[in-house]
Write a protein that binds this DNA or RNA. Structure first.
Length: 990
DNA sequence: TCTCTGCTCAGAGGA
């Protein structure tokens, strides 16, 4: 518990404590022994007494809390009349989540877990657009102006995709929007302050702290200070966006008061419901993260133009904070360890089911609710009422026990894995760790001021430029394209001002594209830019899992194939698959392929369910996929092409672009390979001037080949388009719930991979033990009839050693030419090695094309291997190599990890094994034979390996490799002399 | 022990 962040802010406004001890004191009180010190042996403790219904706060020893109220002689009293306790204040809960939890806390938690599971609805889109029109109007509410704004918003690029998704045309909603305008204008006339205009509207407000009953006031909005203001408030553990932040004058009892208040817009029915009012109460709390307590806010119904004042009463605030505490508890305690600590971690129960058949029948989370209850909580279900149990059964009756088990296991593994990551990359670092401290790790840049003007790029996209106030910028990992959070430094009221991406890094200047315009913030404000790594979201995989459990034919089919291992079916004859007019084109494409590749094409065409293509290194996987897409395209089929990473997707597209196959690339342009960017949706829309839903529909309809990452399937195109085939490349590296995503949108699928290479990365040991590293590719491999193997390789080096070691001699050589291929080094003769190297024969030998595999033994030399190499298992090693290369002006040599090299190759590869010690300690990374396999199969013509032979021999697979190379006399071993390191990376100059 | 890619977000209404 020496976490320095616990100490920060423990005094003053942010009374942050660690709970040491909890004592129930009868039914009326709970006593917490608390300390503001991080030193647990420190006796500096205080007492916090919880009374009344605060007793129910689920606080435990070890918890971090924040206290509001008064402390007298080391004693805090939190009761119905005074004080608040905020549990886990660093867990920021959004305002809507809290107000959603009023009726059903279980639903609020489920909505957090299964974000984005709910389909977009028409009233929601109308609501969003109305918000934007209102916010853009500022204080100019005339019919003409509103009409003009509405037209540009509806016909602008922002909502085009959403209109497509809901199958709406621009005119369909324009009319509905216009119906609101007279209410907008009515509101403006009543409330917006104008000179020489007597505003006569009065309203009744019972102000917090008013002793008398209601009092009448006149309310005028004098200024719109901000729209969509983003506030993070660790004081109350809340976050949210405020529709409109308004300067308001309130005239009552002959005094006039000016305040900054939140205004919440609602476009639906004028319900004045508890949820709506609660949202405003929460925003009045949230505002205190940035300015003085507004004590109240307003609820404005756009349909009628009526505005209601919502005071932030103590009672309402107290109840909402208690709800927030409970939510934070459930969000944090997702698993429970058994008492013995030896048993498996279990998933915790969610908040209990409510017994309200009407509310439940409308609930958007009812399927997930029932699913979790059946699959996870079944043991604890015995105290549920029979009718609720019946509803749960009914909602999940289409699922077999095997399906519930699959859901349970994956939910648990995903939870374990996300917990592991949450600790390190939490956004709380922004307010808990000073910028200077975070700078040391390269995660942040502080002491920045804004320079130059803010440029509006488009709606909600503003280019800002920051510069270090004094001196140069520190070494940072911040790179172009990284997500950053901009906050005020040393000013806790300016947390999370804007979020965006790094556009350019130029010495001490950094430009960022941000979601908000910061030009209104005082010029001398000092900012910090924090790198937002973003916790690995479980929402995408959980969403896919939830969908897999859905009661639809597509989900049922995938459940049968994936969970129950139903045998994939194939039809008998090709003749019925391809239209006659495509046969010639297909035959031509097939001509360029070898036998197993042709077999793969055939198998895919004959498949009714799925095909697995095992592509061992150098067997032309990319070529095969490319040919497959061309054949399917020629046959008139639509194809969805995906992989986990952008790089892998573009790898195939680069090859495909050479043929006459058009395709649509989805995804953020900055992440796409420059040569492929012209195929992205954004670029096509720009070049073809696509501005209407009809045009967009035509674009989507006209593209039979669509390529994106597995995570890119949230795109609207997938709500309306089905594909004949889905191809997933590098499938052996993708975890099951992610790989599932694209499969919902096609009739058949093809997984391409090689399970002898690296599996999906899993960090949590328990999740790994439970099988989280098993890819869908691996899982389905038990159905042998679905597998085709590409066995003819086009990579010389692979044959030399790897074949017999890993693939049991299955690989055969593609051609005579391949087996004799050597690297072409035309300038080798002319290469004038430095004087000091001329006598060193090892370098010449290493470069000799007739020595295709070399092992440079560093044992005798005692040289630091950290000076050499292109591929290495270790990041640190790569950093050192990169720095050395930069200082010697060697450019364009790709230095990367083994993991990142998977799926790619180069003519010459230098592998640096690094490990060199006497005790045989190899570390975990090199122990994975699959990583070794990847490392040594990346070279097409020449492989140079560097390592300490005696050290590496401690590791069986590597020893086997070395012995094999030795006995077959396929390898050239060289011992390095002292100081030879530098010259080795000079090889790359060739 | 040291391998890391994807993702805006919070809130848009309904009953």
């Amino acid at each position: 518990n020496s976490d320095p962040s616990q100490l920060a802010w423990s005094m003053g406004l942010n009374n942050r404590y660690c709970v040491l001890h909890v004592q129930e004191n009868g039914a009326l009180e709970k006593h917490l022994t608390i300390t503001a010190s991080s030193q647990l042996d420190d006796l500096d403790t205080e007492l916090c007494i919880l009374r009344h219904d605060w007793i129910s706060v689920p606080v435990q020893p070890g918890d971090i809390i924040h206290l509001e109220g008064e402390c007298n002689a080391g004693v805090w009293i939190i009761d119905a009349d005074g004080g608040y306790l905020i549990l886990y204040p660093d867990v920021l809960v959004s305002g809507t989540t809290v107000s959603n939890s009023i009726r059903c806390m279980r639903k609020a938690i489920l909505s957090e877990k299964f974000k984005g599971c709910e389909p977009g609805l028409r009233p929601m889109l109308i609501g969003t657009i109305l918000h934007e029109i209102f916010q853009k109007a500022g204080t100019n509410f005339t019919q003409e102006k509103l009409q003009e704004i509405a037209f540009s918003v509806i016909h602008g690029p922002k909502y085009l995709k959403e209109l497509y998704q809901l199958n709406l045309k621009e005119n369909d909603i324009m009319q509905e929007i216009e119906e609101y305008f007279h209410s907008f204008i009515k509101w403006a006339e009543e409330f917006i302050y104008k000179e020489n205009h007597v505003c006569q509207h009065n309203m009744q407000i019972k102000w917090p702290g008013d002793e008398k009953d209601d009092s009448w006031c006149t309310v005028k909005v004098t200024e719109i200070l901000d729209v969509e203001e983003n506030i993070w408030c660790p004081r109350f553990g809340l976050k949210g966006k405020i529709d409109v932040t308004a300067g308001v004058t309130i005239h009552r009892r002959s005094t006039t008061q000016s305040m900054i208040m939140p205004l919440e817009l609602k476009s639906g029915k004028e319900s004045n419901s508890i949820e709506h009012r609660s949202q405003v109460v929460l925003y009045s709390l949230l505002c205190q993260g940035r300015r003085a307590d507004p004590e109240a806010g307003f609820l404005l119904y756009l349909k009628t133009g009526n505005m209601f004042p919502v005071p932030g009463n103590r009672m309402d605030r107290r109840e909402l904070i208690k709800l927030r505490n409970e939510l934070a508890f459930y969000l944090l305690h997702t698993v429970c360890k058994s008492d013995t600590g030896k048993e498996r971690t279990q998933l915790a129960s969610l908040p209990p089911l409510i017994n309200d058949s009407k509310a439940c029948s409308y609930c958007s989370q009812k399927q997930n609710c029932a699913l979790y209850s059946r699959a996870v909580e079944q043991q604890q279900n015995h105290f549920i009422s029979p009718d609720v149990l019946a509803a749960v059964e009914n909602e999940t009756q289409h699922l077999k026990p095997s399906h519930l088990e699959y859901f349970h296991l994956w939910y648990l593994m995903l939870t374990l894995e996300s917990q592991y990551k949450d600790g390190k990359k939490s956004c709380r670092n922004i307010w808990m760790i000073p910028a200077a401290e975070r700078e040391k790790h390269g995660d942040c840049i502080g002491n920045m001021i804004r320079v130059e003007c803010v440029q509006k790029v488009s709606d909600g996209l503003y280019l800002h430029c920051f510069q270090r106030k004094k001196g140069s910028a520190p070494a940072t990992t911040l790179m172009i394209g990284d997500r950053v959070v901009v906050s005020g430094e040393a000013d806790s009221t300016l947390l999370g001002l804007a979020i965006g991406y790094v556009q350019q890094v130029n010495g001490s200047k950094i430009s960022c594209l941000l979601d908000r315009n910061l030009s209104r913030i005082p010029k001398d404000t000092i900012f910090r830019l924090d790198h937002e790594e973003g916790a690995f979201g479980t929402d995408a995989p959980l969403g896919n899992l939830s969908k897999l459990m859905g009661n639809s034919p597509a989900s049922e089919r995938l459940r049968n194939l994936i969970i129950d291992f139903q045998k994939p079916q194939f039809i008998q004859h090709l003749s019925s698959v391809l239209p006659p007019e495509a046969k010639e084109t297909v035959a031509n494409i097939l001509k360029g392929l070898n036998k197993p590749q042709k077999q793969a094409m055939k198998q895919v065409l004959l498949s009714k369910d799925y095909t697995l293509i095992v592509g061992m290194p150098g067997t032309g996987k990319t070529t095969t996929i490319c040919a497959l897409v061309r054949i399917l395209y020629a046959g008139g089929f639509s194809v969805l092409l995906t992989s986990f990473t952008h790089t892998a997707v573009d790898n195939i597209l680069l090859k495909l672009a050479k043929f006459k196959v058009g395709f649509l690339r989805l995804g953020r342009v900055q992440k796409v390979h420059p040569a492929i960017q012209k195929f992205t949706e954004e670029e096509i829309c720009r070049s073809k001037c696509i501005k209407t839903v009809a045009d967009l529909e035509e674009l989507y309809r006209s593209q039979p080949v669509v390529a994106t990452t597995c995570m890119g399937i949230k795109h609207p195109i997938f709500t309306r388009k089905q594909f004949d085939f889905c191809i997933v490349d590098e499938a052996s590296q993708i975890s099951q719930p992610i790989c599932l995503g694209p499969l919902f949108y096609s009739i058949r699928f093809v997984l391409v991979g090689d399970h002898q290479q690296l599996p999906p990365l899993v960090q949590n040991a328990e999740a790994r033990d439970l099988g989280m590293g098993e890819s869908l590719f691996k899982r389905l491999e038990r159905n042998k009839n679905a597998i085709v193997q590409l066995t003819v390789h086009y990579c010389l080096v692979a044959t030399y050693y790897n074949n017999n070691l890993v693939y049991n001699g299955k690989l055969e050589c593609g051609s005579e030419k391949v087996s004799k291929a050597i690297v072409d080094l035309p300038n080798l003769k002319d290469l004038k090695l430095d004087q000091k190297f001329s006598s060193e024969t090892w370098l010449k030998e290493t470069l000799d094309p007739n020595n295709p595999v070399c092992f440079l033994n560093t044992e005798k030399a005692g040289c630091k291997p950290s000076d050499i190499g292109v591929i290495s298992p270790y990041r640190h090693q790569l950093k050192i190599i990169t720095d050395l290369m930069t200082s010697s002006f060697i450019k364009n040599v790709e230095v990367n990890t083994v993991d990142k090299y998977q799926g790619r190759d180069k003519s010459i590869i230098i592998v640096s094994f690094v490990r060199n010690n006497a005790d045989g300690n190899l570390g975990e990374l090199l122990k994975d034979w699959r990583r070794l396999n990847v490392a040594i199969t990346r070279a097409k013509h020449k492989l140079i390996m560097l390592g300490c032979v005696p050290s590496l021999c401690h590791y069986p697979p590597l020893k086997k490799l070395l012995c094999h190379l030795d006995t077959e006399a396929m390898i050239s071993f060289f011992c390095l002399p002292l100081g030879a390191c530098e010259s080795v990376y000079r090889c790359n100059l060739l």
